[in-house]
Amino acid sequence: MSNILESVNKRTQLVGQNRLELLLFKLNGRQRFGINVFKVKEVLQCPPLTSLPRLNSNVRGIAHVRGMTISVIDLSAATGGRPIENIENCFIIISEYNRSVQGFLVSSVERIINMNWEAIMPPPQGAGRGSYLTAVTEIENELVEILDVEKILDEISPVNTNISKELDDKLTIDRDLHHHIMVIDDSSVARKQIIRALSSLDLQIDTAKDGKEALDKLRLMAAELEDVSTEIPLIISDIEMPEMDGYTLTAEIRDDPKLRNIKVVLHTSLSGVFNQAMVEKVGANDFIAKFNPDELAAAVNKHLSL
């Protein structure tokens, strides 16, 4: 376990190379699951949990870890499986998503593996836990499932997707133009959250589930247009996505004369100083941590009002 914790702290060098590292774990049974190491703050033997009234049924309790009080979510129960038993012999993966820290209760933690995003594929129809999968990959001839954590968290504690009236009154975007933008995210829940947050801006919104699908759509448009930004002036893209991540997508856009004028806002649950460096390296116009509807709407307003 100490080796895993040491590895968790040394992974920023892979960002921007269309690579990631997955922490492998199991819930109930033999099925392996993975979580991106960049989301992981710590892995611990499950500490004593305190039950509180009116907790969501998938929250096993509250843990006190290094001065923080965090909710511990049973990942098996949250994805429709049976609750994990004998939790004193289990582990919690402490992670940060969408500006909040939570613990995920898992039965066991295995190791970290280095992967290329091209080897991370969208889930097949009808696979495993169905709507709770955001991607799959194959390791040692076994299917590894990558869960849609944003969907799980939204079911337990839905995020606010409404922009404030104070901000709405200050927006300068010309809503009569019905600007055409593209939203790219492998989580269907995240795509819907963005669309709801921007609904009052009267935009035309196309979507794509990963960087490769988005780039294919943009290049198809480029076959008809000299400058695709005249049709789609702005894209909002997640960073972590199967097949092609957001950094690689941005670099591809900047390398294509017909696409390079498109504004790119990277919108991600990843956090850290290294993100800002990568924003500049690949040529993105903005970086926003998920999920704050006012910050998202303000960024869209800024880039479409120029």
Rank of each mutant, 00 (worst) to 15 (best):
V144H: 04
A208R: 07
E140W: 15
K165P: 12
I184C: 07
D185E: 09
E213R: 06
K192Y: 07
M182F: 03
A251P: 15
Y247K: 08
E252D: 00
V149C: 04
I184M: 08
D168E: 15
L225E: 05
R191S: 00
E150V: 07
S131Q: 11
L171P: 01
D216A: 06
S237K: 05
T248Q: 15
T230V: 12
I181K: 02
G130R: 13
D245A: 10
L249H: 00
E155L: 07
E142T: 13
D206G: 10
H180D: 07
I139L: 12
K192S: 15
A135V: 12
D169F: 08
E142G: 11
R196E: 15
A197E: 08
A214D: 01
S199G: 10
K151A: 09
M241C: 02
E166Q: 13
V136D: 07
T207Y: 03
E231A: 14
M182W: 00
T207W: 03
L133V: 02
M182N: 00
N141S: 12
G130W: 09
V149E: 01
K209R: 11
N160G: 05
D202A: 06
S157F: 02
K165F: 11
A135R: 12
I205F: 01
S157T: 07
I253T: 13
T230E: 15
K151D: 02
I156F: 07
I181T: 03
D186W: 09
L249F: 01
S188K: 14
K209P: 03
T161E: 01
L215Q: 00
T207P: 08
E145L: 13
N160Q: 02
D154C: 04
E224A: 11
A190Y: 02
L167K: 08
I181Y: 05
R219S: 09
L220H: 14
A214M: 00
R196G: 05
P233A: 04
K217C: 09
H180E: 11
I232P: 09
E142W: 12
E138T: 15
D185T: 08
D245Y: 09
L249Q: 02
L133D: 04
D216K: 08
V149M: 15
K192H: 13
V136C: 09
I239N: 07
S188P: 00
L201Q: 13
A135M: 12
D206E: 14
T250C: 14
D238M: 00
S229H: 05
P233M: 05
T161Q: 00
A251I: 11
A222R: 04
Q193F: 07
A222N: 05
M244E: 03
G130C: 10
D185M: 09
I156Q: 03
T207I: 12
I194L: 14
L249K: 04
L198K: 13
I239E: 03
I139H: 11
M244K: 09
S164E: 06
E252N: 04
D227W: 00
A135N: 11
G128M: 05
K170A: 14
L201C: 06
E224M: 10
R175Q: 12
E140I: 15
H178K: 13
V159M: 01
I173P: 02
D202Q: 11
S200A: 08
A127N: 02
I235L: 14
E140R: 15
K192N: 14
A190I: 01
K151F: 05
A127M: 05
M182D: 05
D245C: 11
V149F: 15
T137R: 05
